[in-house]
Write a protein that binds this DNA or RNA. Sequence first.
DNA 1: TTATTTATACTCAAAATGAGCATAATTGAG
DNA 2: CTCAATTATGCTCATTTTGAGTATAAATAA
Lengths: 316, 316
Amino acid sequence: MPMSDSGNTDILIDISTAILRAHEGELQFRALEDAGKSAKRLPFGPFMPDRHRTMEISLRQWVREQVGVDLAHVEQLYTFADQGRYRSGESDERHVVSVGYLALARAEDAGGGAWDNLYRHFPWEDWRNGRPDVLDAVILPALDNWLGQHDHAAERVRLAFGRSEAQWDEEFVLERYELLYQAGLIEEAARDGRITPPPQMALGAPMQLDHRRILATALGRLRGKLKYRPVLFDLVPDRFTLRALQETTELVIGASLHKQNFRRLVEKSGFVEATGETNRARGRPAELFRFRHGNRADRPLAGLRVSGGRKTSRAP
Amino acid sequence: MPMSDSGNTDILIDISTAILRAHEGELQFRALEDAGKSAKRLPFGPFMPDRHRTMEISLRQWVREQVGVDLAHVEQLYTFADQGRYRSGESDERHVVSVGYLALARAEDAGGGAWDNLYRHFPWEDWRNGRPDVLDAVILPALDNWLGQHDHAAERVRLAFGRSEAQWDEEFVLERYELLYQAGLIEEAARDGRITPPPQMALGAPMQLDHRRILATALGRLRGKLKYRPVLFDLVPDRFTLRALQETTELVIGASLHKQNFRRLVEKSGFVEATGETNRARGRPAELFRFRHGNRADRPLAGLRVSGGRKTSRAP
DNA sequence: TTATTTATACTCAAAATGAGCATAATTGAG
DNA sequence: CTCAATTATGCTCATTTTGAGTATAAATAA
């Protein structure tokens, strides 16, 4: 972006969308397969400014028509313009800038098509059953080793992965992914020619292009947003039990919560109201709630702060 | 972004940067003047992908060389691609997509050049001396009136501006700006031909293009980020008194805080350490602190939650 | 010296949080 | 029909965190 003269590079903008839903105990995203490629990809397509007034509107329409999903929430994530890092091997002579979007869908509105388990691509992010083994078994040793030649990154590693317990900030999804990429623990890094491939170490299932980075951005953003906007309700059905809402929350943040406190939190928030109906399932029937749009709460919107799972273990 | 065929529209990407600093009791941004135009603008320039590896790196360099400011923090805000809304009257036949950035500078590193008071463009956002008069005198009545023909927006208005007291969410800067724009209370709306101009009502100082929208995005983002990342320290000098840190916080959030509680919050956060030195000023000398990089705090980063100013007045 | 100004220390009640225990309302097995 | 298992919901309680003061300390200016 220098001084004058608007260099006449041809630029192509494409829009890539991480469409998430909560379904069958998994946090899933819409994944497409291309013949001949084992790695999947996100739905994406070129942005044509002469045909669409805004990116978001056209994205919604395009996703509904081409991907068959009705989107509840849509949010722009980030514009990736790095050159020469991803997309090596592609043969478009134009420069590609890609705008990443996060979209949420309710399982009901999700149509057919293939959905993939998000945590299959980010196994180190799922702490619902405690600290993932891969962290101590693979990631931390490998990062320690990598830090040998790259000790300037020590602070970043400490921040992203913590050292001891309870230092894990679940929002740092992207920071962790990028560190793993740079340290050569991500298959895409080898593919992009960034590092000699150590394929036996590759963590999580790879994806095409930089789509795993977009997914990481999406997950991090969603985890953050949860805490201050009622975005969860775009992932659950119209009527839901508190149990379902909690499960969805746990899916997103990748940690488990204390049931009674979660209930207290949600009820107090003013976001939900009981419908009077109940569901029928295994144990005692649960009351069905619905999202309360015009919330009368004092605090404007707020979100849900997490609690349980990981110990808050303060140093002695 | 439809199905196939990558329509051959020429696209120009430019990068516009809201560079903020805290100086002389004001939240300021770097503003440029163009001969013959009364409205100012943000620094911006074309992005040329063949010359720069990433937008952020080139932005830093370009801002240092061309604008004379050393940036502390840089963060991508949003990519605006709306067509036909802003930039009417410009005569570039190419479609312009603009990527907005937020950058923070310390007053010391800010060089010469013109800086403008941010709240001059957003007078309704500054609550440091209580609720701004313009809200009840102009904005709410005008919005009420506008809602007559546009009652579908009632919920948005309620959310953005609250109805009674203490419903104000300081992060909704962009939502408020866009509502005012749509309601024709913003001069840019008349300029863009969106509304018959009622110039006696125009709120805040206008800017060129959509730069006030970018500023609104920047302020909203910064206010949000404050609360969960230690980004404040990119606005204060190397050593600072707690008083200075508090003033900076108040500038950003546009509200005043309780001094003793702010001190408690900051000290407990683990972000600062005393240097032993003190400053000399009017009253009792204050201790000088510095930012503590390798924070030993348990909670990964956290930020500063606000308190004082506006009453928390819960309904009776 | 004294009033003024700013910084810092402490207190205290109210609210929020983290962790349990206790009880209620179902279904499925025998 | 009764009991065990299962899930939902209600309630308690100690601890922290927050909001709002009061009190004291260390300067400067008059």
